[in-house]
Design a protein around this nucleic acid. Structure first.
Lengths: 331, 331
DNA sequence: TTGTACGCGTTATCAA
DNA sequence: TTGATAACGCGTACAA
């Protein structure tokens, strides 16, 4: 294990000098800098990141908190893209990241969780899809002990930023498009997400606005982002309604497959733009967002907070689309 | 940030005593143990894992190396399951894990990579789907500087174990079943994985054995686990052959969709048992493996190595199945 | 411009 | 049975 001492010895300088060279201090002569760099090169020295975080006054380690408790395997795609975006940025900024699955924290109080994170020298969090059930994480955000960026949860304060698309407008746009494309629109079924979720509330508002504008009868059911539940809801209401609007692609797919089994057709629209859409040759309208980019943006916002910026809300773009098979397979 | 010093102060003992209590040393009186445990409880103290690894002579930190360069989004499901299995075990064993995407290492020599990992205090690796192109990782395995477990690559030595299903038998079984189910079998197309890959070689051998047994004409093309490539291969050969055997579900799905576009039918079989299979109402034969379990097993093997065991090969079970929609959606 | 000495939080050794 | 003290590898005032 090559340490800074080995480099110092080889270069014939003090280890503090090596440290200065490595951290780009100004007051170092070209000569010693060259000596040190040569020694680093020859020994293949890489600083021990653990010791660095331990020693530094201002350490930065980021915890990525991913929620995989959604009720389908296909949420994997989204979470994986979040991780990929964050890891790319972590490499760019040279900041350590640690991944957590939020279910790990289920049986912890906010104090326990806070202590646990601090024990790992984590001072920042990027939280994806924070659910309103996660009381401990909410308390941590409120206590402002960590720099946080929330992806898809509209909370921000001095030390917390949020990154998300405009869920209200996106839901409005895609639902409106689908309604406009249909001739019959007396009675519409909206399959919402999870009761009490931030996103769910915003999206529901949008549908209610449409209801006022178009004067249709609106049935709201909570599918809990679960494809199976959406399927059951459609079995219950499918025949009665003209259009089905879903708060996620997965539920939309559940709806379409249920309709097929019922041997009836109803226009359906989804939300997210996941690849799976391309395989269900349904040609539904959906809202496409770039999850990798959103995660990268979240990382950038975290960097801003670390550099002294104040928490804010960042809005990401979205796009209405229909995903076909050729759109989702990659060369 | 509550440290061992705070606990020591509160309990009225030396910090070394606290450390002894925490690490279950024998020579500690019940009285002081109780005092210390009380203080730990009250302060919500959690040891700083970084300092622990830094201080300990025998540190254990595990690097999970996931390969996401496969050519589809749907490989996400498999990788995510690998991660979930590993994280669960890491919690059980209380061993730190760090996730890497293998593309991070592309431009590193094995020396650089080794130094980098060591700089992070990583001494173990679980490598998923090691590709034969990753020369640097291969060298690291050969050098035996790290404890390694390979998932789905048949390499093992004193410090390296491998965990995988029997790819030869599995490919043989699923292909044979598909051939048996078909009346016409003069000419069969095998869409293999990546040229030079371990798995690819094993699976190809199995198909060649079948060729001898059933005396059919065999066309072998390399689809590189890429759905799009498989699609093109089917456009080229689909009409000429009676049956199409694919080395992955994804390529099988690409094949089936291509056949649909060509407006012809051919029996197709896949490999992996991914959820996506359920959405393509094709009802193909495939080999189903439990990725979460495989990853957990890999972690167990790593633990054995750490406890002084020798590297070995572990075979995991598999199952022939046809995945339908209701099989893959979760309540 | 360079080097000395101390601290970060922990474990391990050895003396008490 | 307990407590000082030296590591672990690094950053950083402060002194030289």
């Amino acid at each position: 294990m090559i340490s800074i001492n080995d480099v110092a010895k080889k270069a014939g300088v003090a280890k503090s000098t090596v440290s200065k060279v490595l951290n780009n201090y100004q007051l170092v002569s070209e000569e010693t800098r060259a000596k040190v760099e040569k020694a680093v090169e020859e020994l293949g020295y890489v600083p021990n990141t653990l010791a660095v975080s331990l020693s530094k006054k201002t350490f930065n380690r980021i915890g990525l908190i991913v929620d995989i408790r959604h009720n389908s395997q296909f949420i994997d795609e989204i979470d994986m893209k979040y991780l990929i975006g964050a890891y790319e940025k972590s490499k760019e900024y040279q900041i350590d990241v640690v991944t957590f699955f939020s279910s790990q924290f289920d049986d912890m109080s906010s104090e326990q969780l806070s202590a646990y994170l601090k024990s790992q020298r984590i001072n920042c969090l990027i939280i994806y899809n924070l659910s309103s059930e996660n009381r401990n994480l909410h308390e941590i955000i409120e206590n402002k002990e960590f720099y946080c960026v929330l992806v898809d949860s509209p909370i921000f304060n001095e030390k917390t930023s949020s990154v998300s698309i405009d869920h209200y407008m996106a839901q409005y746009d895609v639902a409106r498009l689908t309604i406009e494309e249909s001739n019959i629109r007396d009675k519409i079924l909206y399959i919402a997400g999870g009761r009490g979720g931030y996103i769910t509330t915003q999206r529901l508002e949008a549908v209610r606005k449409l209801q006022k504008e178009y004067q249709f009868e609106l049935i709201v059911e909570y599918g809990n982002f679960n494809e199976y539940k959406a399927r059951e809801i459609v079995f219950q209401w499918g025949r009665e309604v003209n259009i089905i609007i879903c708060a996620s692609d997965l539920m939309a797919i559940g709806a379409v497959y249920a309709l097929t089994d019922m041997d009836i057709f109803r226009p359906v629209c989804g939300f997210d733009g996941i690849s799976l859409m391309g395989y269900t040759k349904a040609g539904m309208n959906t809202v496409k967002q770039d999850f990798v980019q959103k995660s990268k943006q979240a990382f950038d916002e975290l960097k801003k907070l670390l550099d002294g910026g104040k928490g804010c809300h960042i809005e990401m773009p979205y796009e209405l689309t229909k995903l076909g098979y050729m759109d989702v397979i990659q060369k």
